[in-house]
């Protein structure tokens, strides 16, 4: 008996019998942006802010993290075990995620992470499990996500962002793109911030 796999592949081949192979894809669209560094950072800040996220540009990201947590009233905060010492504010109970279960994560007030790269045009941060980022659940379950973005990790366009992330995909690392806080437009297409993901997103651009 033919397996479903063989049957489907045979149907595909039969369907395509008369089809010449398609022309190559021409990538004539913009592959990179034209702004200078300051312009890219400025655009990123504007676009993240448009999503109702809080954006801070700081030359001392540690202090910015501390004030973001204080402003949000977050006392118990989850971090990845390898988060940079300078991003760990004093006076806050920091809980290293050494495999916390979902309910433990749910009991936290927030999480502080870094990110892999970011895209200015769409106001997107990308998390790929690299240093300081932790596993995906860490920046998902708690209701506050404070994310530190190195200014030099911000690219201007989506093609540049995807190029930056491709090595992680090849290594099999999961990637999450975050553009603003959790939102829904399911009720009369009115955008409401906050359903299941973190309802508050604070992005700190470290210059």
């Amino acid at each position: 008996m033919t397996s479903p796999r063989e049957a489907i592949l045979a149907r595909v081949r039969a369907s395509l019998a008369d089809t010449p192979s398609a022309v190559a894809v021409s990538r004539t669209y913009r592959l990179r942006g034209e702004r200078d560094r300051a312009g890219v950072i400025e655009l990123f800040v504007e676009r993240v802010r448009a999503y109702e996220a809080t954006v801070v540009v700081a030359d001392d990201p540690g202090a910015a993290v501390a004030s973001a947590l204080e402003a949000a009233g977050a006392r118990r905060v989850g971090i990845a075990p390898d988060l940079d010492r300078r991003l760990r504010p004093p006076g806050v109970e920091l809980i290293e995620d050494q495999g916390l279960d979902s309910r433990d994560l749910d009991g936290l007030d927030g999480a502080v992470t870094t990110c892999a790269s970011a895209c200015a045009e769409t106001g997107t941060i990308a998390i790929d499990g690299g240093p300081g980022q932790g596993r995906r659940a860490l920046s998902l379950v708690p209701d506050l996500h404070v994310c530190v973005v190195r200014a030099e990790a911000i690219v201007e366009t989506v093609p540049e962002l995807i190029a930056a992330l491709e090595p992680s995909a090849r290594e099999g690392r999961p990637i999450v793109l975050v553009s603003g806080p959790s939102a829904t437009s399911d009720i009369e297409l009115t955008r409401v911030e906050g359903v299941h993901g973190p309802r508050r997103l604070v992005v700190i651009v470290a210059t």
Partner: peptide, 20 residues
């Protein structure tokens, strides 16, 4: 949705030890 980017995009590749 008429947005520059949707809030969340998840990309995963098979299974990843210790994450998911």
């Amino acid at each position: 949705t008429g947005e520059r980017m949707n809030p969340y995009t998840s990309l995963w590749t098979g299974v990843c030890e210790g994450d998911g």
